[in-house]
Amino acid sequence: MFGRSGNPALNADTFGNSAKSSPAGIQFKSSETMTLEGTVNKTGILLALVVLSASWTWNMFFESGNPATVMPIAIGGAIAGFIFALVTIFKKQWAGTTAPLYAIAEGLFLGAISGIFEMQYPGIVIQAVGLTLGTLASLLFLYKTGIVKPTENFRLMITSATMGIGMLYLVSMLMNMFGSGGIGFIHSNGLFGIGFSLFVVAIAALNLVLDFDFIEQGSEMGAPKYMEWFGAFSLMVTLIWLYLEMLRLLAKLRSR
């Protein structure tokens, strides 16, 4: 869950079958092509769905006060979210259906996890939400104004770092499963643990720049309309990852 790549959705085939004309050479009308406005609106819809489903598990947790009551739904949501994410990545044309389902499933997971963190560290969730959205707005400003300029080397570095973080989380998870306690510093609240969390937050945040560039170029190239859902989905994957890492970082800082 925490180790999933920020945007595994963005690869060489992203626009491969989505240029201005269809394979039959038919030109898409402007109303049928991807736009910035459409992508932003769809991101809003996905955000609203995440908040709605998260509020359900959040309320359920605080009514019972027992993590055991929400954990099956949280785990189910995480697994379902992962499956919907994979389907969206491999079948971009289905993004209009699978991206909202992904948002609902991830919302169930986020609501439960956020509730558990909030009970341990009151006020932490609003801090993580504020910092995540603050990072989103700041990086969008830096991208739009051309202060941050993503290049191919930038893409290589961020993708490699994201994959490396994914590997570390995977190894840690496997070590945990076999009872060796995982990679200690990932979860520790010491200097290395906090340093690692800061690094992961920075990489997750820089993934947002790649998402913005992908969306910008998609709308410039006149990608098909369903790519709006796909662009919004990519942004949501990164935002959810960033939010979870913010929660972990803040929890480490608060537990010292």
Binding site: L36, E37, T39, K144, G146
Partner: peptide, 10 residues
């Protein structure tokens, strides 16, 4: 901001 195109610099 999301609705506007990025600057020419970008």
């Amino acid at each position: 901001l999301g609705q506007f195109k990025a600057s020419k610099k970008q």
